[in-house]
C-alpha cells in the first residue's frame, strides 16, 4: 500500500485517534493522539492489510519552541514490504505516553533510550531504567536546554 492508502485506511478505522497526516514528501506519517497510540499500534501490527511487524526505530525530538516532544515510530512490513511512520506529541514538562512494547517487543530498548536521553516516561513499560547513561546521571542529554555538568562523582570536567 502507498502512504496515502495507509493514511486513508487508518482514518477509516481510527478516525478519532488520527489528528493529521502527511502523505507525500520525504517522510510520510500520521500524527496520532497519545491516548490512541496503543490501539493504533496494535492495529498497524495485526491488521492483515497492513502487517507492520518490524518496528525499526523510535525517535524522540525535542521542540522547546512548541513546548513539546515528538515521538516518531518507524515501522515496516517484512511480508508486504511497505513502510510507514506514526507520530505522537507529548507535553514537554510532563512527557508520558503508553509503551508499545507489548505490541513490538523491540520497543523495549528504544523506549529505554528515549527515557534515558530525552526523559520521556513510558507507562506500563516492563523495565524502564536508563540504558546508556549511568543510573545517577542528572538530566537528559538530548534535551535542547541540557546543561553540561561540571562534576560527576568527584570527576571534574573541563569545558
Amino acid at each position: 500500500m502507498t502512504p496515502s492508502d495507509i493514511i486513508a485506511f487508518l482514518q477509516q478505522h481510527h478516525a478519532e485517534s488520527v489528528v493529521s497526516a502527511v502523505a507525500d514528501g520525504p517522510y510520510p506519517h500520521a500524527l496520532v493522539k497519545a491516548e490512541g497510540l496503543a490501539a493504533v499500534a496494535a492495529f498497524l501490527k495485526t491488521q492483515p492489510r497492513l502487517r507492520f511487524d518490524l518496528l525499526r526505530c523510535i525517535s524522540a525530538i525535542d521542540w522547546p519552541a512548541k513546548n513539546n516532544i515528538e515521538l516518531a515510530y518507524d515501522v515496516i512490513s517484512t511480508s508486504l514490504g511497505h513502510a510507514f511512520a506514526i507520530k505522537v506529541v507529548v507535553d514537554r514538562a510532563d512527557p508520558r505516553v503508553e509503551s508499545v512494547s507489548t505490541v513490538w517487543p523491540a520497543a523495549e530498548w528504544h523506549e529505554r533510550e528515549a527515557f534515558d536521553l530525552m526523559g520521556v516516561e513510558f507507562l506500563h513499560h516492563p523495565d524502564l531504567r536508563r540504558i546508556l547513561m549511568p543510573e545517577d546521571w542528572p538530566g537528559h542529554p538530548l534535551r535542547k536546554d541540557y546543561q553540561d555538568i561540571v562534576e560527576y562523582r568527584g570527576l571534574k570536567f573541563n569545558p
Binding site: P26, Y27, A72
Partner: peptide, 16 residues
C-alpha cells in the same frame, strides 16, 4: 525530516 535505512553488514542502519 526523513527516515532512511540501509542494509549494513550487521543489519539495518537507520538515520532519522
Amino acid at each position: 525530516e526523513v527516515y532512511y535505512e540501509v542494509e549494513n553488514p550487521r543489519g539495518q542502519l537507520g538515520f532519522h
